[in-house]
Design a binder for these strands. Structure first.
Lengths: 121, 121
DNA sequence: ATTACACTGAACCATATGGTTCAGTATGGA
DNA sequence: TCCATACTGAACCATATGGTTCAGTGTAAT
């Protein structure tokens, strides 16, 4: 549904709106890691890191699995395809909008030229 | 700088993490609008909408200009190029990661086959 | 059996977010 | 001049966010 997409966009963009979480994704792209690994790397308490991982997990960007006493984090199923598509569409609209403006500017220039010619006549 | 980029990513992704603000961008792509126009369209107070526009403006996604008593909002200079690039790079890493896993799986299968052959010998 | 490790949950804190109302200010139109 | 319009800013509110500490629980190693 639209609602569902909206909610998912909210979650994934919000997840990306934090430098630590983007860093975690970067790190997990290099290899799986435990909560402790990540907490060390980003100089943060276990509890703090767990919250970040939770946000990423809710957004589908990360999945985790606990075996024994260590929880391993890895990249999740969300590949940011829709987010990418949203931005791509936005940029397309932005370009069209500016082409439109260019059109207007060209039109204005033509009119100005025409006025210049008239004056000179 | 890296810091600067990080801050910009924070602002732009946070700006996108709200359905109303994404809607405003959509709307502005269709044409410029006043705060009143947007507030009406999204059934919100002027003050509320002004805050959203402020967030979008800070992220460079919107610019505004006040002439007379009406403030006109239009798409801003930020075309989300770097954000798009970040996501593209992420997806690339994600793919590599999974190719890597496929590689590991293939390796495991080969080893298993090898063990099978050994056992049968 | 003891101890160390890895995580978890609750509670707390400061600040940010998304919204409102209310009381202005400034501008445009009759 | 008078009134309606369009915005603005301050204050407020509830909830979310990004972090912490502290007190557990369960697992691994000695």
């Amino acid at each position: 549904m639209v609602q569902c997409n909206q909610t998912h966009f909210n979650a994934s963009f919000a997840a990306l709106a934090d430098a630590t979480r983007r860093g975690v994704l970067d790190q997990l792209a290099r290899g799986n890691a435990s909560i402790t690994d990540l907490a060390d790397k980003f100089e943060m308490t276990l509890t703090g890191m767990k919250k970040h991982v939770g946000v990423l997990e809710l957004a589908g960007l990360v999945t985790t699995e606990k075996v024994g006493r260590v929880r391993t984090c890895r990249l999740g199923p969300c590949r940011l395809e829709e987010e990418m598509a949203w931005i791509a569409r936005y940029r397309q609209m932005w370009d069209m909008r500016f082409e439109g403006l260019d059109g207007v500017i060209d039109e204005l220039k033509r009119q100005e030229k025409a006025r210049g010619r008239k004056k000179r006549q």
